[in-house]
Design a protein around this nucleic acid. Sequence first.
DNA 1: CTGAAAGCGCTTACAG
DNA 2: CTGAAAGCGCTTACAG
Lengths: 345, 345
Amino acid sequence: MASVTIKDVARVAQVSVATVSRALNGHGNVAEDVRNRVFAAAQELRYTPHAAARSLSSRRTQTLGVVLPDLHGEFFSELMRGIDQVARAQRLHLLVSSYHGNPQEQGAALRAMRGRVDGLLVLSPFAEMPPLLGEHLDSSLPTVLINSQSGLDGTAVLRVDNHGGAVAMVEHLVSCGHRKIAFIAGPADNFDAHERLRGYRDALARLLPGAPEWVVQGDFDEASGHRAGHELLAAPQRPDAVFAANDMMALGCLFAFAQAGVRVPGDIALAGFDDIPLARYVHPALTTIRVNIAELGARAARLLIAQITPDAGGESPTTPSDGVLATELIVRESSGSPPSTPRSP
Amino acid sequence: MASVTIKDVARVAQVSVATVSRALNGHGNVAEDVRNRVFAAAQELRYTPHAAARSLSSRRTQTLGVVLPDLHGEFFSELMRGIDQVARAQRLHLLVSSYHGNPQEQGAALRAMRGRVDGLLVLSPFAEMPPLLGEHLDSSLPTVLINSQSGLDGTAVLRVDNHGGAVAMVEHLVSCGHRKIAFIAGPADNFDAHERLRGYRDALARLLPGAPEWVVQGDFDEASGHRAGHELLAAPQRPDAVFAANDMMALGCLFAFAQAGVRVPGDIALAGFDDIPLARYVHPALTTIRVNIAELGARAARLLIAQITPDAGGESPTTPSDGVLATELIVRESSGSPPSTPRSP
DNA sequence: CTGAAAGCGCTTACAG
DNA sequence: CTGAAAGCGCTTACAG
């Protein structure tokens, strides 16, 4: 079953290659019996069209490109799941490329997509748009940016409502009676981190006017949360509540508190952001903000498909090219308020 | 920056397209100054070769295909991480395709890879080789099967040592003094599940001759572990230890025990398989078998690359085409033996 | 070292 | 409804 081409099928079916192409692609204008002969021949020979050849002449690859900073963990797999779900419904393939957090590589990854994909999904979490992004984005290639700083001409952007989520969390903590609310920030150069910090600040200013901000720097990983936890405990006055910009840091912080014999939420309340699977399993279960990453991926894919084929079941044409994905407050034990729903495994 | 082709570069550099091609591909036999002119022209025009065209004429796609049952969770993301790591070192792209557990779709996915990839990594966990696999595998396309039942002619297979891991776990449980060891099995039609069950049986027969097997059926998800837990507690004589064929089921079982007020490991010891991130966070931390999935992906990718380009830094030529990936016993609290290392977050 | 030309395997106007 | 032919954008012997 080496390489059987359209010519072989044409020969066996005794028609021209043009007819084979039309028959196999369902182009209507083919006589019934001819079509059957072609199908039979194709089947007999186990013919599969050569994708590169088809792409070259049809200018379509039936493939969506996904360019990410890394292929790591929950976020990646959830995003891919969402993207895959809508891509397959359109019979589109997925070409994934990680640039390993390296802006240099990002440009290369973007450029290498030419001729391989019909459109691009790009995750570029840098708070400052790398100049490369704009330069390497082929303006003739439909593109949807995910959770990225915008700033690009007409490129569609889809974002998680990080700001709104952070505001909701501060509101919740305040409603639980907490007043001295510290924040463990994410990496300064990360756009999501930036938005969450902004949400914390805005909510604090509005709900607790006059209350000082209390921000400890972290970098989204557990170790930095652990350090931040110790740092907070060392302060002359301890906070009532700690809001970490993501769950991993909240977990690190929780561990630091446990080491120091500080009880959560008895002594200090704690909250995170993301609702990773672990969040419900730690003790106490972590109050957090849920982000439906699969949905983010699915919507981004729909947005992109709508750009590629305005009538293939993508987002409706009235959908604005920019979108925001809502978040959800998940109240568990760690924030000092009894959870609204019983704990489930 | 629409579509600039090699012709445009040739015109600007005032050479033939053949020369442009040779210069850009580093073919040595190009005069220094000509090469420079070509590079300058390419840069000026922001030229990027069209992948489909290049593939069609060179018969190489610079892409590895990955065909998986689903794009779900930890296993998927770890596998991808490992594959990506070695693929990028060779500047290879990754085309991923999920067949959503549907053998029918698997065939389609496999066939659709023609002309898109230089080789295939296929995960086909069905205990019975779907006849489709063999039929749809293009014999001219280098392929590596991952964790699949073999049975195919010369196709390379890479496996996790599920049998060995299960044996090691039973040995550990026995060494902790447990005698009545129950097993929560995975889905009957899953190859990994089958091997783990076989390991349990073999070890039991060897270490505890005469002891009856005690197998409860599960299907790898948490809910089935939960059911199995209740079922085990309802038995006239409770087991000393429960070995679940994966961590998710162990977690479900743990939850069932907690609900029933049964203490782990005090009343019943518990162990899982996989070492998912949650395993160390639950209480008590779960004794399990670690499988380095990223390494599995990396080795599979190397094996495949070696087939594609026997001298591009893939596995050494002496590497057998079949391989087994060792597992590691991770002792934590749940098995009733004090953990050998202090608990870390 | 360089160019003209064939060819990779398809698709798609263009005639008929 | 069908076929001959051009063309998609490259690469690669083949000459020179």
